[in-house]
């Protein structure tokens, strides 16, 4: 019994220690930093108490505001497109049984490629002078478009990259869910005289809801973390048109070496995301599971 108790603790301890040291302790560290201005002199941190001043600066920080706004815009638009496209493609291509392994390989590939490489690929493709997209436009007699340099287009261009990057993933999950639905239900609906859109509305959608929600949440979480593609494609520009929150924090904390202010921003971001999680789960539980 004694050795059992020992092992019970010993097996759980590494995970708990890791979590405490590398996620909880850093939160306190961030909190402490956020009340100070910190400067590094000869590898020694010099802390100067500034109270809440770092937090007071946040609402007037155009980068921070743009970052939050663009992140939400980016996540909502990109994920919406991925979900709808993925769902539609799954509906369109269910029952295609040939070349399965080939298709699966192709559609998993983008998920496994570093985000930075995705950025690199599209940086080449979006290039004003020689990118394939402008080449095609020229062939058709159009004028080349400055995809990443035009403030009105840049965020949309980034969203297109993300849609291209993640639609295959949404498609695969939707397809898996669609194909796991019991076939006899469709036959029963057919006998009941349901039209195609009625089958979609009353049978497919409700039955796939769990898979749709899971995919949606998974994608939203990742979309809020967007960094790599922005870093490589636009660096947040032009102006603040593609500034996203992760990038703002990186810029403030590391590029500009404002540890205290960057920490305040980090904590504020965590607070915003936590609030959204709580609101979302409240909303989800109030609406109740669709059965």
């Amino acid at each position: 019994m004694k050795s059992d108790t020992f092992w019970r603790y010993a097996t759980l301890a590494p995970a708990v220690i890791l979590f405490v040291l590398l996620t909880i302790l850093p939160l306190f560290n961030l909190a402490a930093l956020s009340f100070h201005n910190v400067e590094w002199i000869n590898r020694e941190a010099v802390w100067e108490w500034v109270g809440l001043r770092n937090y007071a600066k946040l609402p007037n920080d155009t980068l921070f505001n743009a970052g939050i706004l663009n992140t939400i815009l980016f996540a909502v638009v990109a994920v919406a497109f991925q979900m709808v496209l993925g769902f539609w493609l799954a509906l369109m291509t269910t029952r295609v049984t040939r070349l399965r392994v080939f298709y699966r390989t192709v559609f998993i590939l983008p998920i496994l490629v570093p985000g930075i490489v995705i950025g690199a690929i599209w940086k080449l493709m979006y290039s004003y002078d020689f990118g394939i997209i402008n080449q095609v436009i020229l062939w058709f007699g159009g004028n080349p478009v400055d995809w990443l340099g035009n403030p009105d287009l840049a965020l949309m261009s980034v969203i297109i990259v993300d849609v291209w990057h993640w639609t295959p993933f949404c498609f695969l999950l939707m397809l898996a869910s669609l194909e796991s639905l019991p076939q006899d239900i469709f036959e029963a609906a057919e006998i009941d005289g349901a039209r195609r859109w009625q089958v979609l509305r009353y049978i497919i959608l409700p039955l796939m809801m769990p898979a749709i929600i899971v995919t949606f949440i998974f994608r939203m979480i990742l979309a809020f973390k967007v960094f790599d593609e922005i870093y490589l494609l636009t660096g947040g520009g032009p102006g603040t048109s593609t500034e996203v929150i992760s990038f703002t924090i990186y810029r403030r904390f590391f590029t500009e070496d404002q540890s205290g202010y960057g920490s305040a921003m980090s904590l504020a971001t965590i607070a915003v995301i936590a609030t959204m999680i709580i609101l979302a789960s409240r909303f989800a539980t109030r609406k109740g599971p669709e059965q």
Binding site: T23, L27, L30, L33, R43, A45, I245, Y250, T269
Partner: peptide
């Protein structure tokens, strides 16, 4: 923790590791 962008903790990691 999984939902929070890692960059938000990176600052603290950097400070602590340093």
């Amino acid at each position: 923790f999984h939902m929070v962008p890692p960059i938000t903790l990176a600052g603290a990691w950097y400070t602590m590791f340093r």
